[in-house]
Simulated assay, not measured.
Amino acid sequence: MSLFVNLVGLVLMALVVWWFWLSNRKSTAQAATQEATIIVEDGVYSPASIRANTGQSLTLHFDRRDPSPCAEQVIFQGLDTSAFLETGKTTTLTLDNLPAGKHRFTCQMQMYQGTLIVD
Rank of each mutant, 00 (worst) to 15 (best):
Leu7Arg: 14
Leu7Trp: 00
Val8Met: 15
Val8Leu: 15
Gly9Met: 12
Gly9Phe: 14
Leu10Arg: 15
Leu10Thr: 07
Leu10Lys: 15
Leu10Val: 13
Val11His: 03
Val11Asn: 01
Val11Cys: 05
Leu12Arg: 10
Leu12Glu: 03
Leu12Met: 12
Leu12Phe: 10
Leu12Pro: 01
Met13Leu: 15
Ala14Gln: 06
Leu15Cys: 14
Leu15Gln: 07
Val16Met: 14
Val16Lys: 05
Val16Gly: 08
Val17Trp: 01
Val17Lys: 10
Trp18Gln: 14
Trp18His: 13
Trp18Met: 12
Trp19Ala: 14
Trp19Gln: 14
Phe20Gln: 14
Phe20Gly: 00
Trp21Ala: 13
Leu22Ser: 07
Leu22Lys: 07
Leu22Trp: 08
Leu22His: 06
Ser23Asp: 11
Ser23Lys: 12
Asn24Tyr: 07
Asn24Gln: 12
Arg25Asn: 09
Arg25Asp: 10
Lys26Cys: 06
Lys26Leu: 12
Ser27Asp: 12
Ser27Pro: 05
Ser27Cys: 09
Ser27His: 08
Thr28Pro: 05
Thr28Glu: 15
Thr28Ser: 14
Ala29Val: 12
Gln30Glu: 05
Gln30Thr: 15
Ala31Gln: 15
Ala31Met: 12
Ala31Ser: 15
Ala32Ser: 15
Ala32Gln: 12
Ala32Tyr: 02
Thr33Ile: 00
Thr33Tyr: 02
Thr33Met: 00
Thr33Phe: 01
Gln34Phe: 04
Glu35Ala: 15
Glu35Cys: 09
Glu35Leu: 10
Ala36Asn: 06
Ala36Met: 10
Ala36His: 06
Thr37Glu: 11
Thr37Ala: 11
Ile38Arg: 04
Ile38Trp: 04
Ile38Ala: 05
Ile39Asp: 08
Ile39Cys: 03
Val40Ser: 03
Val40Ala: 03
Glu41Gly: 02
Glu41Asp: 10
Asp42Tyr: 01
Asp42His: 09
Asp42Met: 06
Gly43Gln: 07
Val44Pro: 02
Val44Met: 07
Val44Leu: 09
Val44Asn: 06
Tyr45Gln: 00
Tyr45Val: 04
Ser46Tyr: 01
Ser46Gln: 10
Ser46Phe: 01
Pro47Asp: 07
Pro47Val: 12
Pro47Trp: 02
Pro47Tyr: 04
Pro47Ser: 09
Ala48Gln: 10
Ser49Asp: 05
Ile50Trp: 00
Ile50Pro: 03
Ile50Gly: 04
Ile50Thr: 01
Arg51Asn: 15
Arg51Ala: 11
Arg51Val: 00
Arg51Lys: 14
Ala52Asp: 04
Ala52Arg: 02
Ala52Pro: 04
Ala52Phe: 04
Ala52Tyr: 00
Asn53Pro: 00
Asn53Cys: 01
Asn53Gln: 09
Thr54His: 03
Thr54Asn: 07
Thr54Lys: 13
Gly55Phe: 00
Gly55Cys: 05
Gly55Ser: 02
Gln56Phe: 03
Gln56Val: 06
Gln56Asp: 11
Gln56Ala: 14
Gln56Ser: 13
Ser57Gln: 11
Ser57Trp: 02
Ser57Phe: 05
Leu58His: 00
Leu58Glu: 00
Thr59Gly: 09
Thr59Pro: 07
Leu60Val: 08
His61Lys: 15
His61Glu: 04
His61Asn: 14
His61Trp: 06
Phe62Ser: 02
Phe62Thr: 02
Asp63Leu: 05
Asp63Glu: 11
Asp63Met: 05
Asp63His: 10
Arg64Val: 05
Arg64His: 03
Arg64Gly: 07
Arg65Val: 08
Arg65Cys: 06
Arg65Tyr: 04
Arg65Lys: 13
Asp66Ile: 08
Asp66Asn: 13
Asp66Leu: 08
